[in-house]
Design a protein around this nucleic acid. Structure first.
Lengths: 251, 251
DNA sequence: ACACCCTGTGTCAGAAATGTTACATGGGAC
DNA sequence: GTCCCATGTAACATTTCTGACACAGGGTGT
């Protein structure tokens, strides 16, 4: 609320006001500007100038800010300690952004997108394919690994490979096949220390603590959905921009 | 700023206001109460009542709070995808907890869980069924609506119905059929103002801003995955506790 | 069908508060 | 002395806030 620079810049009268305010916080938040002026023995105009000086537009804004400050001081922050929360804090603050940008670049240049995954990752792959298609990017989910992929699809395609552990042998086999056939590969795995991540052209890792229940991996997949949706949205934005430029290069 | 209880308690007009505010945040903070009233096609009194409802003493307090929220947001998160963040803040802080607990209660008593959904919600339903099964709760995803459900499955079952809009006619039809056959219904929808929510025994709503791209609904489904996983985990915990008590009633 | 009530909403007037402005004052610096 | 700056004053404009009331629609009981 009050930075040290502010306090340093106060003159005598303002210091008086400041002192009064901090010693009577709980009363000030209910006062009218005239009351405060009276209590501090200054004019309302001075109070108002004071408010502006500490970064408020007016007296009422000053009061609400003070009020909020008081409240936040007494209430201890909760939430916080949640795994998923941590993921979002990481992605939103750090520069996973740049990796995402690279992925979008790659996807923009592709004519079609193939999704690969097994088990629950398979379901998410299906979701991804659907979401991408909804946003206008041709994409499909490869369910059956022996399914013959048409030549047209292999040309100039990007595959998005999903795997939590990154060690599923079927997934790896399929990824190899796709690479051999000239598809670029983006993998989304829980961490970068796995075969899938190492073998792909680009890797997005989300680093949740891996959890198991009687041998099945039950690590949360919330980040995967988030990454897939974000990719699709960014891609869509990107392509739309590109189209605008192509259509009308002078604007 | 807006907790999920608040949002849930909004009626039509208030929801309109809410939607306008969050889509025009940066304008609202400069508006007079009359302007906002005009833009949202309601009276100033309604705006004022709205402000009080969301925990502000008056309109000016509302504006300052909004202003502060905007500022704090830009300093922490960078642009864009804060929508999902908001969901987590809401759920983690507020007590959506109690609704989740009720759901878990209901699920504990059921012998099996049926997942229902169409389109992308269908994929998520499949994911849910798989996740529940991984955690030891017998559950299945009903893909084909004409699929004859075995009697054994109908007895003492809970259905989890997924639908973003909550208005898909197939889903509703299927829900009706399940209800008729004695299954309890938990629905997971984007908001409570929809047929699906109203018709179910229990509703979990996540309140993301609905987004469309050329008529298809592309609202984020991150909360759905989160809710499904959380349900499964809590359920598992709960059942484990119960078993411990049954096995060894003295500890 | 009717009366009744309750709730949500709008309207309006006027009180109360804030914000603005122009000007007065007064004390120091030059 | 006089010029300037900080402050006070006071009237006025603007805005918010309050309260009373009207009105519509839905539900309920008779």
């Amino acid at each position: 609320m009050f930075t040290s620079e502010m306090i340093a810049s106060f003159n005598d009268l303002e210091t008086d006001i400041y002192n009064y305010v901090i010693t009577h916080e709980h009363e000030v938040i209910y006062m009218r500007i005239r009351e405060l002026a009276e209590h501090t023995h200054v004019s309302t105009a001075t109070i108002l100038r004071f408010c502006k000086k500490v970064g408020c537009e007016g007296f009422s804004e000053f009061k609400t800010k003070l009020k909020l400050e008081l409240k936040s001081r007494q209430s201890v922050v909760k939430s916080g300690e949640h795994a998923v929360m941590e993921f979002f804090e990481r992605t939103l603050s750090s520069d996973q952004e740049t990796v995402l940008e690279e992925a979008v670049q790659m996807l923009t240049q592709a004519d079609n997108v193939l999704f690969v995954g097994i088990g629950s990752s398979g379901i998410l792959a299906e979701y991804g394919a659907r979401y991408f298609s909804s946003l206008g990017k041709f994409s499909m989910y490869i369910k059956d690994f022996s399914y013959p992929i048409h030549n047209r699809l292999q040309k100039n395609s990007v595959s998005i490979v999903l795997s939590v552990s990154g060690e599923n042998s079927f997934t790896i086999k399929q990824m190899n096949r796709l690479k051999r056939e000239g598809s670029k590969v983006i993998s989304i795995t829980n961490n970068k220390q796995c075969t899938t991540a190492k073998m792909s052209d680009l890797n997005l890792a989300y680093y949740m603590t891996e959890e198991y229940y009687e041998d099945t991996n039950i690590t949360t997949q919330v980040p995967v959905i988030y990454l897939l949706e974000t990719l699709a949205r960014k891609l869509n934005q990107h392509e739309q921009q590109r189209n605008e430029i192509l259509e009308d290069p002078h604007e």
